[in-house]
């Protein structure tokens, strides 16, 4: 089935339901903030959220009560500090208890790769002498049938839905990623459905090099044009990271009341169209 162009509201409503496993990826670049806000606005609950580097948008989803479980390998506000909503959920169970499944980056990167490759698990040289296997039952060790070498194994990541942000789609719905591309391609290919927000929709990709990171339209479910949709993270070629907001978030999220007030004001009363102004303000 070929990708359909939709509104963000329609894309989230038609692809994500309560209880789903959702990967909103972006390795500190191209983070799908606008789509995350739409999930909060629609009040979707009991999600298993997967992400290598959960940061602000996952802090918001967790604090807003959308998540039941978090699968991750590094959780923080990059360059600023910790995620207060994540900590509050893990340590105090607010707004409710959050189950966590913790991995290393190598494990998750391999697990996405295995998911995209249609394998049941990922096998790699990892976790040697590390303590995570003691607390995470999804980390096991298997023996190489040829050499006898002990190798780490983790289940493949096969999300119900992958949500990512990219620079461009063309009018046919093919999608182009540039810069630090993280695990976005793997997440989309590993998932049953995918929502991709893009900075702009262009006529064609005539000026793009042959080996650019691209997803053809038949590998994507929904495409939504959301200029500035990765704000406050950045989109290479479009805008810079809004570092002032990353710092401000540390204070906003540090208190349950100020967090809730922020979500009410900027998410519940907001919409994807608010992001375009942020793109202009952070052009660099």
């Amino acid at each position: 089935m070929v990708a359909r162009f939709m509104s963000l509201k329609e894309a989230v409503a038609s692809c994500i339901k309560d209880g789903d496993t959702v990967s909103m990826e972006g390795f500190t670049h191209l983070i799908p903030h606008a789509a995350g806000h739409e999930v909060i606005r629609q009040g979707i609950r009991d999600l298993t959220l997967i992400r290598m580097t959960p940061d602000m948008i996952y802090d918001q989803l967790i604090g807003a009560g959308c998540a039941r479980k978090l699968v991750f390998s590094w959780g923080g506000n990059p360059g600023v500090g910790s995620l207060h909503r994540l900590r509050d959920a893990v340590q105090e169970g607010w707004p409710h208890k959050l189950e966590i499944e913790e991995h290393s980056h190598a494990a998750m990167a391999n697990a996405y790769d295995a998911g995209a490759a249609g394998l049941p698990c990922a096998v790699f040289k990892g976790y040697r002498g590390a303590e995570l296997p003691r607390v995470n039952k999804n980390i096991k060790f298997i023996e190489c049938p040829f050499t006898g070498e002990s190798l780490a194994a983790v289940p493949a990541i096969r999300p119900d839905v992958a949500v990512v942000h990219a620079q461009k789609a063309n009018k046919k719905g093919d999608v182009l990623f540039e810069g630090i591309v993280g695990v976005q391609k793997e997440a989309v290919l590993a998932a049953k459905k995918s929502i991709i927000t893009v900075e702009e929709i262009v006529d064609n990709f005539d000026d793009v090099p042959y080996n650019a990171v691209m997803l053809p339209n038949w590998a994507v479910t929904a495409i939504v044009e959301v200029p500035g949709g990765a704000h406050p993270s950045y989109a290479q070629g479009y805008y810079k990271r809004d570092n002032a907001f990353y710092k401000a978030w540390d204070k906003i999220a540090n208190d349950r009341d100020s967090f809730t007030a922020w979500i009410d004001e900027h998410v519940m009363k907001g919409g994807p169209e608010d992001f375009a102004a942020k793109r202009e303000a952070n052009k660099g």
């Binding site: 500190t28 670049h29 993280g182």
Partner: peptide, 28 residues
Amino acid sequence: PLSIGDGELCETAVNTVPVPEMFRYWLQ
């Protein structure tokens, strides 16, 4: 960089590879 994902790191690099490739081919 402000964080490991800064655009500056990509713009001045010889090459930028997907994260699975980084951990599988180059590190492992």
